[in-house]
C-alpha cells in the first residue's frame, strides 16, 4: 500500500471511530458532562466554599484542571477499550486484518479515536467549568501538549486492556479497580503539600499525579511536581507503550489464532 493509501485507511478508521462515539452520545458524551457538572456544584460550590484556598486559588479553581484531566483520561481509555474489544467480540476486527492496513495505521486509528473522544469530553467539561469559574491558561502550549500526550497514553492503555480481554468483565475490571483509584488519588481534589511526608511519597508513585499537576501548571501556573521532568516521562512512557502495542498487533496477540 502506498503512503497515500495508508493515509486514506487511517482517515477511514478515525472517521469510523468518531462516528461510533457520536452515534451513541448519550452513553459517551452526556454522562461525563453530567458527572462533572455535579462535581462542580457539590465540591466546587457547596463544599469548596467552606474549604477555602488551596495553592493560592479558591477550591473551585484548583480542582477544575484535575477534573478536566480526569474526564480526558477516563474517556480516551474507555473509548479504545470498548471499541476495540467490541470489534473483537463481533469479529469485525477481521475487516481490518484481511485488508492491507499496516499495524501502525490500525493502532494510530484507534488511538486517534480515543484522543478525539477524550478531547471532545475535555472540551465539554471545560465549557461547563466556565459557568462556575474563570479559566485563563497560563501556559497554553504546555496545557495542550500534556492533555494530548495523556489522551494518547490512556488510549494506548485501553488498547492493551482490550487486546488481552476475553470478556466484557475484563474491560471493566481495570477501569474500576485501577484507573478510578489512580485518578481519584492523583491530586485532582488536593495538593500533595496537604499530605504527610509518607503519603506524599506514595502519591509520587502514581503517574496520574504528574499529568494532573502538569495540566494544572498549564492552566493555573502551579504544580506539585517538576513539569519538564513530568512531560519527558509521559512522552517516554507513551512512546514505549506505542511500541509495545505495535508488537502485540504484529504478533496477533488476542486477535489471531
Amino acid at each position: 500500500m502506498s503512503l497515500h493509501q495508508q493515509w486514506v485507511a487511517f482517515l477511514t478508521l478515525v472517521v469510523k471511530e468518531i462516528r461510533r462515539f457520536l452515534r451513541i452520545w448519550p452513553q459517551t458524551l452526556l454522562p461525563p458532562a453530567i458527572t462533572m457538572a455535579l462535581y462542580f456544584v457539590i465540591f466546587g460550590n457547596l463544599i469548596g466554599s467552606r474549604i477555602g484556598e488551596v495553592g493560592g486559588f479558591d477550591y473551585m479553581q484548583y480542582i477544575v484542571p484535575g477534573l478536566i484531566m480526569m474526564s480526558v483520561i477516563q474517556n480516551s481509555y474507555g473509548n479504545v477499550v470498548s471499541s476495540f474489544y467490541g470489534t473483537k467480540f463481533q469479529h469485525s476486527i477481521e475487516e481490518m486484518l484481511v485488508s492491507p492496513m499496516s499495524s501502525v495505521v490500525i493502532l494510530s486509528g484507534y488511538v486517534a479515536g480515543g484522543v478525539a473522544r477524550g478531547l471532545a469530553v475535555g472540551f465539554i467539561v471545560t465549557c461547563l467549568a466556565l459557568f462556575f469559574t474563570d479559566l485563563r491558561p497560563e501556559h497554553a502550549w504546555i496545557t495542550l501538549l500534556v492533555v494530548l500526550l495523556t489522551a494518547i497514553l490512556f488510549s494506548l492503555a485501553g488498547f492493551i486492556n482490550a487486546v488481552f480481554a476475553n470478556s466484557f468483565d475484563d474491560i471493566s475490571i481495570i477501569p474500576t479497580f485501577v484507573l478510578t483509584p489512580l485518578t481519584y488519588l492523583g491530586g485532582v481534589f488536593y495538593s500533595l503539600d496537604q499530605l504527610s511526608e509518607f503519603w506524599r511519597g506514595v502519591s509520587l508513585l502514581n503517574p496520574v499525579v504528574y499529568m494532573v499537576n502538569t495540566f494544572r501548571y498549564g492552566i493555573l501556573g502551579v504544580s506539585d511536581v517538576n513539569v519538564a521532568a513530568s512531560l519527558g516521562a509521559v512522552f517516554v512512557i507513551t512512546a514505549g507503550m506505542f511500541c509495545f502495542c505495535l508488537w502485540l498487533l504484529h504478533r496477533g496477540t488476542g486477535i489471531r489464532h
Partner: peptide, 23 residues
C-alpha cells in the same frame, strides 16, 4: 463479522477505505 449496529452502506464504504480507496 460486521458491526451489527452500522449501516449497510457505511460497512461497505469503510471496507473500501481500509484498502486505501478514497471516499
Amino acid at each position: 463479522n460486521f458491526n451489527q449496529f452500522e449501516k449497510v452502506f457505511d460497512i461497505v464504504v469503510t471496507q473500501a477505505g481500509f484498502y486505501g480507496i478514497p471516499a
